[in-house]
Amino acid sequence: MSYQRVKFYQTGTFTVGNRLLDEGDRTVQARTDRSNSLNSGHRACQGCGEALGARYALDAVMRATQNKMVAVNATGCLEVFSSPYPESAWQIPWLHSVFGNAPAVASGVAAALRAKGKTDIRVIAQGGDGATVDIGFGCLSGMFERNDDVLYVCYDNEAYMNTGIQRSGATPARAWTNTTQAVGTEPGNPMGIGKNLPCIAMAHGIPFVATASVADLHDLETKVTKAMSIRGARYIHIHVPCPLGWKSDPAQTIKVARLAVESGLFPLFEAEGGVVSDRTPIRKQVPVEQYLALQGRFKHLFNPRDEEALAAIQAMADRNIHLYGLLPTKPAMET
């Protein structure tokens, strides 16, 4: 990481410790002169992880570009809750076309800027996991392989929430959705399917790929800022809990997101040119059960306990910890 990780053991969270930092190190949201891409008054649900993630990501882009930016948005919750005519919450030039084409539309904006020689204006595209890993995947892969100068941000809440909670290619194993209901011999989303888009992005060999979480907004901002210091296709995959779809307490969004990270189910890492270059280590691995138990979408795993499924999910977390070296076995990873 390019910033000094400060541990706030006394508060138990990385997000509330801003006041303990030097002013220059605080997140942009703590500043009185902060940028404000996504204005208050939008229609997101209480505890919406996506609204939080989008605001922090875009504000960081605004700061990195001195507000010279254009955002392209896929159809989805973010687009719907932010834009109803004529009350757009966006304080930046913002374009929504259709569900599956945000990466291509952003490529077009970038091409127009190149044609006009306005390379100081930067482009970001954003969408939910359905727009990114499913319907917009072809356009996204095209944008990646052409290495178009676009930062694509995926807000992953692990299902189609805008349409009422249906399974996407990012829905985790055994999660309930309305199209993977908690019935039958294997309730919820089947094991062993779905796709890992950060890894697919890395396989394109693009300059920068990162994962981030609303549990660590400072880390998220730092990654976005770093992404904006690079030209070419960049991808940031942000884990954003959805209280509605996950059946979790809106007040617990940050906690749920943090447990996903600390259990190892959602590893935080960076990759440059297709190779993992950095990761955010976990102080102490928590059992996946702690994460799953806070979410009604996994309720069927506990009543009665589905030991096999819980063990399989734990194994996924353990595998991530091993793959990305998330536990501090080496002192160098602490920074």
Binding site: V105, S107, G108, R114, G138, C139, G142
Partner: peptide, 25 residues
């Protein structure tokens, strides 16, 4: 300074132009 993009589909082609045209190109 025209930009020519070889894209992954016709859907991608017109989508690129939607972005480009909205940017004034």
């Amino acid at each position: 300074n025209c930009q020519f993009l070889n894209v992954e589909s016709e859907f991608g082609a017109l989508s690129v132009l939607i972005g480009a045209s909205a940017m004034g190109a």
